[in-house]
């Protein structure tokens, strides 16, 4: 029974971690920016979703349409905020050292966190209706929320969609060309600036979608982005910064590490994820799925 619980919890948690982390790894992979503000985008997604759902329900519209509302709000919020930040701040700083860019996004994280507080106040928002809507099914006598299953589905769709887009569409392939060599891509006429803006916006949308999908399960309250970003870091660092398959593996590692701990040794729950990260880094300094880059003299 415990095993089934671990398997299901691990699955849920892995899917959630993947959703939270995949945008981060996409942005790093293409733009070489380790984006701490990702946590703030997640929070914004959750808040916008909560507000949108609040309006929707108070208008007395059919309950099933709420899911459309969730998706739409996350998409719009992520896209608008992402494009805005990229245009106003990041674009002026491209080409800086990677470590500097971490500090820039840290500053953005601080600013956006307070912007959220100023916009939505410090009270909590609760929008549990979508979570309760589908009820639960039972595995043995373990209740399993159907909503969680949908999140797993969403993670799979997001992963496959991203893979398809990067490998099978023109824009996606151009994007991989930018990853391989920025100068050559620019010389070949690829509009690197546009690709960057698009990448950042998509990464932001992914963070907002993760936030929106999580909103019905939690109290949406200041500070929800703070822990998320650190978990997302752990996931992408385990898998290898910038690698989408790496994010899948990282999410599964971290998700199951946590699930096992929750059921076997709950005092090590949080510790487990960071410990996995530290061990992976100690053995493979650049993560499981990334290649080390040598320096030429």
């Amino acid at each position: 029974m415990k095993l089934v619980a671990i398997l299901l919890d691990g699955l849920n948690y892995s899917a959630w971690l993947f959703l939270v982390a995949v945008g981060l790894t996409l942005i790093y992979g293409v733009m070489r920016i380790l984006n701490i503000a990702h946590g703030a985008f997640y929070a914004i997604g959750a808040y916008v979703c909560a507000s949108a759902l609040g309006l929707y329900y108070s208008a007395g519209l059919p309950e099933a349409g709420a899911f459309l509302m969730m998706g739409l709000s996350a998409l719009v919020a992520g896209f608008v905020v992402g494009l805005l930040i990229e245009r106003v701040v990041l674009r002026k700083l491209y080409g800086q050292d990677e470590v500097i860019m971490v500090l820039v996004t840290y500053a953005l994280f601080l600013i956006l966190s307070d912007a959220v507080k100023l916009t939505w106040g410090v009270e909590s928002y609760y929008v549990f209706q979508p979570y309760a809507y589908f009820g639960y099914i039972e595995f043995g006598n373990l209740p399993y929320q159907v909503y969680d299953l949908l999140v797993v589905g969403l993670a799979i769709v997001a992963g496959i969609g991203l893979w398809y887009w990067l490998n099978r569409t023109r824009t996606g392939i151009l994007m991989t060309a930018v990853v391989a060599d920025r100068e050559v891509a620019a010389a070949m006429g690829v509009n690197v600036t546009r690709i960057f803006a698009l990448t950042f916006a998509i990464g932001t949308v992914l963070a907002a979608v993760a936030g929106a999908a999580t909103a019905p399960k939690i109290a949406v309250t200041p500070g929800i982005g703070v822990e998320v970003i650190i978990l997302a870091f752990a996931v992408v660092v385990i898998g290898g910064l910038g690698s989408i398959p790496g994010a899948v593996v990282g999410a599964i590692f971290a998700g199951y590490a946590r699930a096992i701990c929750v059921h076997v040794a709950p005092q090590f729950e949080l510790f487990a994820i960071y410990a996995v990260m530290a061990v992976v880094l100690a053995i493979r300094p650049h993560g499981l799925f990334a290649r080390a880059e040598g320096r030429k003299i």
């Binding site: 953005l108 601080l110 600013i111 966190s113 912007a115």
Partner: peptide, 9 residues
């Protein structure tokens, strides 16, 4: 935090 972040930028 907004002030802090802006100062940092």
């Amino acid at each position: 935090q907004l002030i802090l972040g802006s100062a940092m930028l």
